[in-house]
Write a protein that binds this DNA or RNA. Structure first.
Lengths: 340, 340
DNA sequence: AATTGGCAGTCAAATACCCGGAGTGCCAGT
DNA sequence: ACTGGCACTCCGGGTATTTGACTGCCAATT
């Protein structure tokens, strides 16, 4: 049973605590906000909020601090995604506007996001699964070694070095390249792999070994989507907010560098209607992130592939601002990578 | 005027201080090391070392700590690059052995180096300047947009999206591609740029615009060496060694993320005969790194291109071990990327 | 039933203080 | 050149004390 005013109290507790890092007491609330009631009344409300486990007192007789659950209610019901300032919008434009290849775009994006939020920013590479083969190139490096390059929609380039069992001559390589491109060009990546597997048999047994090696490499290369790659920036911000973590931030940083943790987190987060998701404190599967929150949103590329981006910081963060920033950057990125 | 024994004393001061993080006193020296003289004698030596500004006392009557200059003497004259343990060697083998493309190799390398040293590790992408053009590919994306891919020795792939002023047809594109490859293949990158500039004029005026755009993009692409790209890992280690920095490590991390600082540092460091260089404390141009040391070595690729790699940590670091690790990894990387 | 003022109780953080120990510098003696 | 001895210094840790900011509760009020 939480009254309407109690929720209002929760809101100001979250806001004030985020702003000051100090437990907020009943007196300071009535001073700073026009509630029109006395401190004792606020205290009663606070007692209710504490019963609901939305706030807690670090020690007897001190102000209150939001719990994970309190932040959750704030994010779900109370936070207004305050729109970015025009200065911030402009920063996005000028920062991302002039970039060329995908690596560049993502590198800039992650820096931008970390600057907008003052948190650690993370951007996941788009999956390839839904895009199509644009071109395949085979470049001889030595008599028994070549480099295969797969170029796909959306400007992704995947390269690999292939060791061959026997020597190969330029002429045959040219044939092979032509044939592969003819049969794979425009195919979706998943289809391309199946088509490839039938291709090896169309050549004379003498060639079979060498073609087999190349085909195997290409299949692997096409199948291996780089969705498991992350770029991040702004780890210095984590140090800045060190006091918001009870222990050392070492395990936190470690978990971040161990990208596996984040990838799983991203995988588990489904985008909801507002397009943005939060995982708060203990909600995170990894204990190292028990005092951290992760805000993510999805973005899409022209190839139709979906990936995520977001920020990570202490649970005591400015959710309103950060959620707005994540959403804005995700939208801008979708527009940038989607236009074709 | 520093006696031989004084230097020995300096050595053990560095070693003990690095091991314990506590200022080391004359008494503990004679206890832990068999100098065959009394504590008072050691004190005399320490007074000399202090005169030479090789050690300093944090406050009156406390043990001594090496100065930057002291570390410098240690690194230059006293450190024995203790060879890696077989376990460490094996780690290098298994970690780097099975990697495919350049991105992968460098990503693994930097992780490995950070694990071997427990410091922040940094690897610079090889410059392209000395390598040669292997192949150039032009792939149409839309009627007025194409992707150009430059493949060079050593397996580097550089991609870019080119906007064309007018439409271009496949046939002509094929011609152009053939012509470009014929004239550039095998050329050193620097020569390739000059050759390219003459190429545009060989086409009919009608084509000039579109060819000009492509040539301009390619030139830019060839000239832009990616030496300005760094990968790094192990920033969590910096947090672990936080106590070794008097202030916050925030500016340190910031300087690291601001890759410009490191790139300049790398650029200024010339490899000496032993193949490894150290920049200690205040020797670093950037004040943010005044309490940090950077150890670097160069590595080369088959294309003959040179780049650097190294570690960064507090001045109070295990130089012997870290220098050995940097050297070993650099050598292994040279072998891995150099074999052809 | 909701609100208020008042009051006693509680705890953290800040301050002051003291003391032990490690280490130095110096000097006179070997 | 080295050593033992001695006076001196200062840091760090421990304890005690004070201060201040809260809360929780209750009786009174609207």
């Amino acid at each position: 049973m939480v009254s309407q005013r109690s929720l209002e109290v929760l809101r100001v507790i979250v806001q004030d605590y985020v702003a000051s890092r100090e437990p907020v007491g009943s007196k300071s609330i009535v001073e700073r906000h026009a509630f029109g009631v006395s401190a004792a009344t606020i205290r009663n409300d606070m007692a209710m909020l504490e019963d609901e486990d939305l706030i807690t007192a670090p020690h007897t007789s001190s102000g209150r601090v939001p719990t994970d659950k309190g932040y959750r209610v704030f994010v779900d019901q109370l936070a207004d995604l305050r729109p970015l300032t025009t200065a911030q919008r402009q920063a996005i434009e000028t920062f991302l506007g002039r970039s060329v290849d995908l690596d560049d775009v993502l590198a800039r994006t992650v820096r931008l996001l970390s600057q907008l939020t003052n948190q650690v920013a993370i951007v996941q590479y788009p999956t390839l699964s839904k895009s199509r083969v644009r071109h395949i190139e085979l470049v001889p490096l030595a008599s028994t070694r070549l480099m295969s390059v797969v170029i796909t929609d959306g400007g992704r380039v995947e390269q690999r070095i292939v060791e061959l069992p026997t020597e190969i001559d330029e002429v045959f390589l040219g044939e092979l390249r032509a044939k592969i491109n003819a049969s794979l060009g425009g195919l979706a990546l998943t289809d391309a792999v199946t088509t490839l597997s039938t291709l090896a048999q169309q050549f004379s047994p003498v060639r079979e070994n060498v073609v087999g090696a190349i085909v195997a490499a290409l299949s692997e290369q096409i199948a291996a989507n780089r969705a498991d790659r992350l770029v991040m920036a702004g780890t210095a911000n984590l140090v800045r907010t060190e006091e918001d973590f009870s222990g050392s931030i070492f395990p936190v940083l470690e978990a971040i560098e161990e990208q596996v943790t984040l990838l799983r987190l991203f995988g588990e987060m489904h985008v909801d209607q507002s397009g943005i998701r939060a995982s708060i404190g203990r909600e995170n599967a990894d204990v190292a992130l028990a005092e951290a929150s992760v805000l993510t949103s999805g973005y899409t590329t022209s190839g139709g592939s979906l990936a995520r981006l977001g920020v990570l910081g202490p649970t005591r963060m400015d959710y309103s601002n950060n959620m707005a920033a994540v959403r804005a950057v995700a939208r801008y990125l979708t527009r940038l990578l989607g236009e074709e």
